[in-house]
């Protein structure tokens, strides 16, 4: 049994989320919203952290790809 690489999915989801949040935070978050969040533009910061997470998973998947199936893997 051989599954797809979950790291790519995580990188994809958080990359997408991160970009959406950063754009929202920079362009579409009102001062009122920023005041609500104790003066922090939390969309930008959380978005940036998600982009970083996404990059970390991409890098990991790229440096250590899933091993190629050798024969039928393990006996069971």
């Amino acid at each position: 049994m051989r599954l797809f690489d979950l790291r790519i999915i995580i990188a994809f989801l958080f990359g997408l989320y991160g970009v959406i949040l950063v754009v929202t935070g920079l362009g579409f978050t009102s001062t009122e919203d920023i005041d609500k969040a104790a003066g922090v533009n939390i969309n930008v910061w959380a978005g940036a952290a998600m982009v970083a997470l996404s990059l970390a998973f991409t890098l990991w998947a790229w440096l250590r790809p899933l091993p190629l199936p050798t024969g039928e893997g393990k006996q069971d």
């Binding site: 989320y17 959406i20 949040l21 929202t24 935070g25 579409f28 978050t29 009102s30 919203d33 920023i34 609500k36 969040a37 104790a38 939390i42 969309n43 959380a46 978005g47």
Partner: peptide, 11 residues
């Protein structure tokens, strides 16, 4: 409700 603006609220 009290802290998060739209966007991160969705998350």
């Amino acid at each position: 409700r009290d802290l998060l603006p739209n966007g991160i609220l969705g998350i």
